[in-house]
Design a protein around this nucleic acid. Sequence first.
DNA 1: ACCTGAACACCGTTCAAGT
DNA 2: ACCTGAACACCGTTCAAGT
Lengths: 203, 203
Amino acid sequence: MARRSEHSLEKIKAMVLNAAETIVIEEGFLSLKTRKIAMEIGYTVGSIYMVFANMADLIMHINARTLDTIAAQLEQVQDGAADQCIEALAQTYLSYASQNFNRWRMVFEYRFPQNTDIPAWYQQKLDAVFERVEASFAQLAPECTEYRRKQAAQALWGGVHGICMLSLAEKPDRSNINDVAESLTLLVRNFLRGWIASSSNRY
Amino acid sequence: MARRSEHSLEKIKAMVLNAAETIVIEEGFLSLKTRKIAMEIGYTVGSIYMVFANMADLIMHINARTLDTIAAQLEQVQDGAADQCIEALAQTYLSYASQNFNRWRMVFEYRFPQNTDIPAWYQQKLDAVFERVEASFAQLAPECTEYRRKQAAQALWGGVHGICMLSLAEKPDRSNINDVAESLTLLVRNFLRGWIASSSNRY
DNA sequence: ACCTGAACACCGTTCAAGT
DNA sequence: ACCTGAACACCGTTCAAGT
């Protein structure tokens, strides 16, 4: 067989990535299989390993796109009053997560094999999302030390993420989007009110 | 071969459960394999299916123990001032999660196959943990409607859970337990301060 | 140089056959 | 009635062999 150079390696890489992403979106990452990808793009399994080292590598590249999109959406949140801004970030995050649930979920639920070392470029994309949140905390409390600010941002964002995950993972009849959005508002607004009033953002 | 009735089915079920739990604790649920369990207890793979329907069934029973332990630990938290109580619940939860990370993680990260229906007794154990938190919210704001109370409890507990997961999933050098405990305190204390001050707990 | 396809090691699950 | 162990379908990954 061996179709010689019908597509460049670059092209094949893109085809694999797109096909894999589509499978994840439509069926969830548990349904992502090499044979299914190969079938979809009209090549055989072996070809996938010409352009990706292994499944973990492929999944990192799918996640990279997801993380870039999330970061881009968060960047678009208007610079306004810092507290409004943080609320908007949380709602934007929820909005993306609910509309792109399978992709979003893979970022946090797929477990890379024990030996996998996370490349710097990937870690950077993970961090980028969080840094947007931290930037708003810097605006909210400019006097605050970086340590305290990071801590507060981590606490709140861990919370926002947790609410999204617990709520969206359940059946739609047990929780609807409006309830989740309200929970988020509740968490963010009350946390910020408490944080600003307290002394933990000063010295 | 066929060792006749050396152990009762009850006994074998307990042996499978214990062996499986040990593997999860020591190596994580990704390392849980039927052949490994069988080897450990001195039977063959087929025997596991005499006492559990399949992997999902077995894992539910391991998770059941984990959830019972968590619920028991939360029950032990003293009835004191409601806000102190909620803070203690969060710290207790973190404490269990960090000391029993692999078991705790499996409850939330193992994905049951598409068709699996969650039995009522399992859902009940999942709910029990949350109900302990909700009870403290009832003490904190007795006038509050059940809907508002549930919502607040869900928001805060989603947050507590999210902080634990994001923090503990990372490498120990990137986050230590003391930092996480501080984040939790920050979240709970500020959220409660904000919630009590606001009107969302009344009408 | 690119790609195949068969092989390998390893899964969960089943079930006819033994005692 | 209890238990085996071989088989099945299905994974990710590799690589000698073809063009």
